[in-house]
Simulated assay, not measured.
Amino acid sequence: MTTEPGAPVTGAERPPSHRWGFGAFLLVEAVLLATAAMVSALLREGRAPGAPVPMRDILIGTITPTVVAAGVALLITVLRGNGPLTDLRLQFRWDDVRTGLRFGLIGLVVTTIGVAVWTQIVGKENATSAIGTLVQDTRLSVQAAVVLFLYLWLVGPICEEIIFRGLLWGAVERLHWGKERWGRVAAFVLSTGVFAASHLEPLRTSLLIVISIPIGLARLVTGRLLGSIVAHQVNNFLPALALLLTALGAMQV
Protein backbone atom coordinates (compact mmCIF):
# COMPACT_ATOMS: atom_id res chain seq x y z
CA MET A 1 0.00 0.00 0.00
CA THR A 2 1.32 3.47 -0.87
CA THR A 3 0.74 6.72 0.96
CA GLU A 4 -0.07 9.97 -0.80
CA PRO A 5 2.36 12.82 -0.12
CA GLY A 6 1.38 14.56 3.09
CA ALA A 7 -1.03 11.85 4.18
CA PRO A 8 -0.64 10.73 7.79
CA VAL A 9 1.16 7.43 8.32
CA THR A 10 -1.21 4.92 9.87
CA GLY A 11 -1.62 1.26 10.71
CA ALA A 12 1.04 -1.12 9.46
CA GLU A 13 2.90 1.75 7.76
CA ARG A 14 3.61 3.54 11.04
CA PRO A 15 7.32 3.04 11.88
CA PRO A 16 8.32 1.81 15.34
CA SER A 17 8.79 4.55 17.90
CA HIS A 18 12.31 5.75 18.71
CA ARG A 19 13.71 6.30 22.21
CA TRP A 20 15.31 9.70 21.65
CA GLY A 21 13.59 13.03 22.13
CA PHE A 22 14.23 16.75 22.53
CA GLY A 23 17.30 16.09 24.65
CA ALA A 24 18.96 14.43 21.64
CA PHE A 25 18.49 17.59 19.60
CA LEU A 26 19.91 19.74 22.41
CA LEU A 27 22.92 17.41 22.56
CA VAL A 28 23.50 17.78 18.82
CA GLU A 29 23.23 21.57 19.07
CA ALA A 30 25.75 21.52 21.92
CA VAL A 31 28.09 19.40 19.78
CA LEU A 32 27.67 21.87 16.91
CA LEU A 33 28.54 24.89 19.05
CA ALA A 34 31.38 23.13 20.88
CA THR A 35 32.90 21.90 17.63
CA ALA A 36 32.66 25.36 16.09
CA ALA A 37 34.36 26.91 19.12
CA MET A 38 37.09 24.27 19.25
CA VAL A 39 37.82 24.42 15.53
CA SER A 40 37.90 28.22 15.61
CA ALA A 41 40.34 28.21 18.53
CA LEU A 42 42.61 25.64 16.89
CA LEU A 43 42.66 27.49 13.58
CA ARG A 44 43.50 30.81 15.27
CA GLU A 45 46.58 29.39 16.94
CA GLY A 46 49.75 30.77 15.38
CA ARG A 47 47.91 33.27 13.18
CA ALA A 48 49.08 36.84 13.62
CA PRO A 49 46.40 39.31 14.76
CA GLY A 50 44.75 40.94 11.76
CA ALA A 51 46.27 38.47 9.32
CA PRO A 52 44.05 37.22 6.45
CA VAL A 53 42.13 34.02 7.13
CA PRO A 54 43.69 31.19 5.06
CA MET A 55 41.36 29.44 2.63
CA ARG A 56 41.99 26.14 4.43
CA ASP A 57 40.65 27.66 7.66
CA ILE A 58 37.55 29.00 5.91
CA LEU A 59 36.71 25.56 4.55
CA ILE A 60 37.44 23.69 7.78
CA GLY A 61 35.66 26.23 9.98
CA THR A 62 32.59 26.31 7.74
CA ILE A 63 32.17 22.62 7.02
CA THR A 64 33.39 20.71 10.09
CA PRO A 65 30.88 21.74 12.82
CA THR A 66 27.75 20.99 10.79
CA VAL A 67 29.08 17.70 9.41
CA VAL A 68 30.13 16.51 12.89
CA ALA A 69 26.77 17.51 14.39
CA ALA A 70 24.86 15.72 11.63
CA GLY A 71 27.03 12.64 12.20
CA VAL A 72 26.13 12.67 15.91
CA ALA A 73 22.44 12.97 14.99
CA LEU A 74 22.70 9.90 12.76
CA LEU A 75 24.54 8.00 15.51
CA ILE A 76 21.78 8.82 18.00
CA THR A 77 19.17 7.27 15.72
CA VAL A 78 21.28 4.11 15.53
CA LEU A 79 21.95 3.85 19.28
CA ARG A 80 18.57 5.08 20.56
CA GLY A 81 16.21 4.30 17.73
CA ASN A 82 15.68 2.40 14.53
CA GLY A 83 18.33 4.05 12.38
CA PRO A 84 18.15 7.19 10.22
CA LEU A 85 16.13 5.68 7.38
CA THR A 86 13.23 4.92 9.72
CA ASP A 87 13.54 7.57 12.44
CA LEU A 88 14.37 10.51 10.17
CA ARG A 89 12.05 9.41 7.32
CA LEU A 90 14.90 9.23 4.82
CA GLN A 91 13.26 6.88 2.35
CA PHE A 92 13.87 7.68 -1.32
CA ARG A 93 10.76 8.41 -3.38
CA TRP A 94 10.60 10.22 -6.70
CA ASP A 95 7.38 11.94 -5.58
CA ASP A 96 9.35 13.50 -2.73
CA VAL A 97 12.06 14.67 -5.15
CA ARG A 98 9.45 16.30 -7.39
CA THR A 99 7.73 17.92 -4.39
CA GLY A 100 11.09 19.14 -3.11
CA LEU A 101 11.90 20.65 -6.50
CA ARG A 102 8.59 22.50 -6.56
CA PHE A 103 9.00 23.92 -3.07
CA GLY A 104 12.66 24.66 -3.78
CA LEU A 105 11.73 26.75 -6.81
CA ILE A 106 9.11 28.54 -4.73
CA GLY A 107 11.82 29.09 -2.14
CA LEU A 108 14.14 30.60 -4.77
CA VAL A 109 11.48 33.15 -5.66
CA VAL A 110 10.73 33.86 -1.99
CA THR A 111 14.44 34.14 -1.20
CA THR A 112 15.12 36.50 -4.11
CA ILE A 113 12.24 38.78 -3.14
CA GLY A 114 13.02 38.54 0.56
CA VAL A 115 16.70 39.39 0.12
CA ALA A 116 15.85 42.33 -2.13
CA VAL A 117 13.36 43.75 0.39
CA TRP A 118 15.64 43.01 3.33
CA THR A 119 18.59 44.71 1.65
CA GLN A 120 16.51 47.84 1.15
CA ILE A 121 15.52 47.81 4.83
CA VAL A 122 18.87 47.13 6.52
CA GLY A 123 21.32 48.18 3.82
CA LYS A 124 23.64 46.09 1.68
CA GLU A 125 26.41 45.94 4.28
CA ASN A 126 24.07 44.35 6.85
CA ALA A 127 22.23 41.97 4.52
CA THR A 128 25.20 39.73 3.72
CA SER A 129 25.37 36.36 5.48
CA ALA A 130 28.25 35.49 7.81
CA ILE A 131 29.91 33.22 5.24
CA GLY A 132 29.34 35.82 2.53
CA THR A 133 31.12 38.42 4.62
CA LEU A 134 34.00 36.03 5.24
CA VAL A 135 34.44 35.22 1.55
CA GLN A 136 33.91 38.78 0.35
CA ASP A 137 37.46 39.93 1.11
CA THR A 138 39.21 36.59 0.52
CA ARG A 139 40.35 35.32 -2.86
CA LEU A 140 40.07 31.54 -2.82
CA SER A 141 41.72 29.10 -5.16
CA VAL A 142 39.51 27.47 -7.76
CA GLN A 143 39.60 24.17 -5.87
CA ALA A 144 38.66 25.76 -2.54
CA ALA A 145 35.87 27.82 -4.12
CA VAL A 146 34.40 24.72 -5.78
CA VAL A 147 34.54 22.77 -2.51
CA LEU A 148 32.75 25.62 -0.71
CA PHE A 149 30.16 25.82 -3.49
CA LEU A 150 29.42 22.08 -3.36
CA TYR A 151 29.15 22.17 0.41
CA LEU A 152 26.77 25.13 0.50
CA TRP A 153 24.68 23.75 -2.36
CA LEU A 154 24.55 20.00 -1.66
CA VAL A 155 26.23 18.78 1.54
CA GLY A 156 25.27 21.55 3.97
CA PRO A 157 21.53 21.23 3.29
CA ILE A 158 21.67 17.46 3.90
CA CYS A 159 23.40 17.99 7.25
CA GLU A 160 21.08 20.80 8.34
CA GLU A 161 17.95 18.88 7.35
CA ILE A 162 19.11 15.83 9.31
CA ILE A 163 19.50 18.05 12.39
CA PHE A 164 16.44 20.31 12.14
CA ARG A 165 13.73 18.65 10.07
CA GLY A 166 14.96 15.19 10.98
CA LEU A 167 16.08 15.03 14.61
CA LEU A 168 14.25 18.12 15.93
CA TRP A 169 11.12 17.34 13.91
CA GLY A 170 10.99 13.78 15.24
CA ALA A 171 11.54 15.02 18.81
CA VAL A 172 8.70 17.54 18.59
CA GLU A 173 6.31 14.94 17.17
CA ARG A 174 6.86 12.86 20.33
CA LEU A 175 5.98 15.73 22.69
CA HIS A 176 2.53 15.73 24.29
CA TRP A 177 0.12 18.47 25.33
CA GLY A 178 -1.99 16.60 27.83
CA LYS A 179 -3.02 13.43 26.04
CA GLU A 180 -2.50 14.87 22.57
CA ARG A 181 0.76 14.81 20.63
CA TRP A 182 2.04 18.10 19.28
CA GLY A 183 2.14 16.63 15.80
CA ARG A 184 3.54 17.66 12.44
CA VAL A 185 2.26 21.24 12.34
CA ALA A 186 3.93 22.00 15.66
CA ALA A 187 7.10 20.34 14.35
CA PHE A 188 6.95 22.53 11.23
CA VAL A 189 6.51 25.76 13.22
CA LEU A 190 9.16 25.01 15.84
CA SER A 191 11.76 23.65 13.43
CA THR A 192 11.32 26.69 11.17
CA GLY A 193 11.94 29.10 14.04
CA VAL A 194 14.82 27.14 15.59
CA PHE A 195 16.48 26.68 12.19
CA ALA A 196 16.47 30.44 11.62
CA ALA A 197 17.68 31.30 15.13
CA SER A 198 20.41 28.64 15.13
CA HIS A 199 22.38 30.52 12.44
CA LEU A 200 23.28 33.02 15.19
CA GLU A 201 22.73 36.00 12.89
CA PRO A 202 20.11 38.02 14.86
CA LEU A 203 19.70 40.71 12.23
CA ARG A 204 18.88 38.10 9.56
CA THR A 205 16.65 35.82 11.67
CA SER A 206 13.36 37.11 10.28
CA LEU A 207 14.68 36.75 6.73
CA LEU A 208 15.86 33.20 7.48
CA ILE A 209 12.38 32.34 8.77
CA VAL A 210 10.86 33.45 5.47
CA ILE A 211 13.47 31.48 3.53
CA SER A 212 12.97 28.31 5.58
CA ILE A 213 9.16 28.18 5.31
CA PRO A 214 9.05 26.55 1.82
CA ILE A 215 11.70 24.05 2.94
CA GLY A 216 9.66 23.10 6.00
CA LEU A 217 6.50 22.85 3.90
CA ALA A 218 8.21 20.23 1.72
CA ARG A 219 8.80 18.15 4.87
CA LEU A 220 5.24 18.76 6.07
CA VAL A 221 3.59 17.85 2.78
CA THR A 222 5.60 14.70 2.04
CA GLY A 223 5.93 13.48 5.62
CA ARG A 224 9.55 12.57 4.88
CA LEU A 225 12.96 14.22 4.93
CA LEU A 226 14.01 13.87 1.28
CA GLY A 227 11.53 16.52 0.13
CA SER A 228 12.98 19.16 2.44
CA ILE A 229 16.55 18.16 1.54
CA VAL A 230 15.86 18.68 -2.17
CA ALA A 231 13.98 21.93 -1.51
CA HIS A 232 16.88 23.19 0.62
CA GLN A 233 19.43 22.29 -2.04
CA VAL A 234 17.44 24.03 -4.78
CA ASN A 235 16.98 27.09 -2.57
CA ASN A 236 20.72 27.22 -1.82
CA PHE A 237 21.89 26.93 -5.42
CA LEU A 238 21.86 30.61 -6.42
CA PRO A 239 23.36 31.90 -3.13
CA ALA A 240 26.05 29.21 -3.34
CA LEU A 241 26.77 30.13 -6.96
CA ALA A 242 27.01 33.82 -6.00
CA LEU A 243 29.53 32.95 -3.29
CA LEU A 244 31.51 30.84 -5.77
CA LEU A 245 31.74 33.74 -8.21
CA THR A 246 32.58 36.14 -5.37
CA ALA A 247 35.32 33.85 -4.05
CA LEU A 248 36.84 33.66 -7.54
CA GLY A 249 36.74 37.43 -7.88
CA ALA A 250 34.25 37.31 -10.75
CA MET A 251 31.49 39.03 -8.76
CA GLN A 252 31.23 41.56 -5.95
CA VAL A 253 28.56 41.32 -3.24
Score class of each variant (00 low, 15 high):
Gly50Phe: 03
Pro15Ile: 07
Gly23His: 01
Ala30Asp: 01
Ala24Gly: 06
Glu45His: 14
Leu33Ser: 07
Gly50Leu: 04
Ala24Gln: 10
Ala36Ser: 13
Leu42Ser: 14
Ala37Met: 11
Leu42Met: 12
Val31Asp: 00
Phe25Ala: 04
Ala12Thr: 13
Arg47Cys: 01
Leu33Cys: 07
Gly46Val: 06
Val31Gln: 05
Arg19Tyr: 00
Ala34Arg: 02
Val28Ala: 00
Leu32Tyr: 03
Leu42Ala: 15
Pro15Arg: 06
Ala36Gly: 15
Gly46His: 05
Gly11Phe: 00
Ala36Asn: 13
Leu26Gly: 04
Leu43Thr: 12
Val39Gln: 01
Pro16Leu: 08
His18Thr: 09
Val39Cys: 04
Gly46Glu: 02
Glu29His: 12
Pro15Ser: 05
Glu13Val: 06
Thr10Gly: 09
His18Glu: 05
Pro49Ser: 01
Gly23Phe: 00
Thr10Arg: 14
Trp20Thr: 12
Met38Leu: 11
Pro15Ala: 01
Thr10Trp: 05
Arg47Asn: 11
Val31Lys: 06
Phe25Tyr: 00
Arg44His: 12
Glu45Ser: 14
Val39Tyr: 01
Ala51Lys: 12
His18Gln: 12
Ala41Leu: 15
Leu43Arg: 14
Arg19Trp: 00
Ala34Phe: 06
Val31Phe: 04
Val31Ala: 02
Leu32Thr: 07
Arg47His: 13
His18Tyr: 02
His18Val: 07
Leu42Ile: 13
Arg14Glu: 13
Pro49Ala: 05
Glu45Pro: 02
Glu13Gly: 11
Gly11Val: 09
Ser40Phe: 13
Ala41Ile: 14
Ala36Gln: 14
Leu43Ala: 15
Ala48Thr: 15
Ser40Asp: 14
Val39His: 08
Thr35Asp: 03
Val28Tyr: 00
Arg44Ala: 15
Ala48Phe: 05
Ala37Trp: 03
Arg19Leu: 06
Leu26Tyr: 05
Ala34Lys: 10
Ala41Gln: 13
Gly50Glu: 00
Glu29Pro: 00
Phe22Pro: 04
Ala37Thr: 09
Leu26Cys: 08
Leu43Val: 10
Glu29Met: 14
Ala37Cys: 04
Glu13Phe: 11
Ser17Cys: 02
Ser17Ala: 14
Val39Asp: 03
Arg19Met: 05
Ser40Leu: 09
Pro52Arg: 02
Gly50Pro: 09
Arg47Ile: 09
Pro16Asn: 11
Ser40Ala: 15
Trp20Lys: 08
Ala12Leu: 05
Ala34Asn: 05
